[in-house]
């Protein structure tokens, strides 16, 4: 995978915002999970740069949040976020080219379905499996946390994410009605 400089800077800034917002920009639901505005950053990175940058921004961002947040390191959750970021960032792959101002209701539906799917795979499957491998205990609590994470993340991603995507598309759509002569 070759990244150009712009993508790298985008991932870095996304990761920094993700980390800071994960620590400060959320309403705590249960331990380790919150209704966090950090998810919006994943959506923006995904829209501007694509799936792998979104995944990296979420994964690195979660590591940063762990480093400055003071709740200890939970790499299982970082990887869960990475998987989720991959799904959220798929936007350009199914034709929602936010950079060119393309985002329709059809794309919003696909996006919502992928968000729920990504959450279930990321936190319902990958995180519990990794928790067993890395920490080998606390699976009951991880399940409770996983379900609350799925619900709260999906809520933020859909309720906040869809309007943000429409707004971003509108913002970038200024030049699209020009035709080349």
């Amino acid at each position: 995978m070759k990244f150009n400089t712009k993508t790298i800077v985008g991932i870095a800034i996304g990761a920094a915002l993700f980390g800071v917002l994960m620590v400060y920009g959320g309403i705590r639901v249960t331990t380790n999970t919150s209704l966090t505005s950090a998810m919006v950053v994943t959506v923006v990175v995904g829209a501007l740069f694509g799936p792998i940058p979104a995944a990296l921004a979420a994964g690195v961002g979660n590591c940063i949040a762990d480093l400055i947040g003071g709740w200890g390191f939970w790499f299982d959750w970082s990887i869960g976020n990475l998987v989720l970021g991959l799904f959220v960032g798929l936007l350009p792959v199914y034709g929602a080219k936010i950079n060119e101002g393309v985002f329709t209701v059809k794309h919003a539906v696909i996006y919502s379905v992928l968000c729920i799917l990504g959450n279930i795979i990321g936190f319902g499957l990958v995180t519990p499996v990794l928790t067993t491998v890395f920490y080998s205990s606390e699976l009951t609590i991880t399940w409770i946390q996983a379900w609350s994470a799925i619900v709260s993340n999906a809520t933020v991603l859909i309720v906040v994410g869809v309007p943000v995507l429409f707004a971003l598309a509108k913002r970038n759509a200024r030049g699209t009605n020009l035709t080349k002569e």
Binding site: A12, A15, A16
Partner: peptide, 18 residues
């Protein structure tokens, strides 16, 4: 090193966010 840049740039950017 590109991944390293992501880490260092992100940390460098946090005070700017504040």
């Amino acid at each position: 090193y590109k991944i390293c840049t992501i880490f260092s740039l992100a940390f460098r950017y946090i005070p700017d966010i504040t």
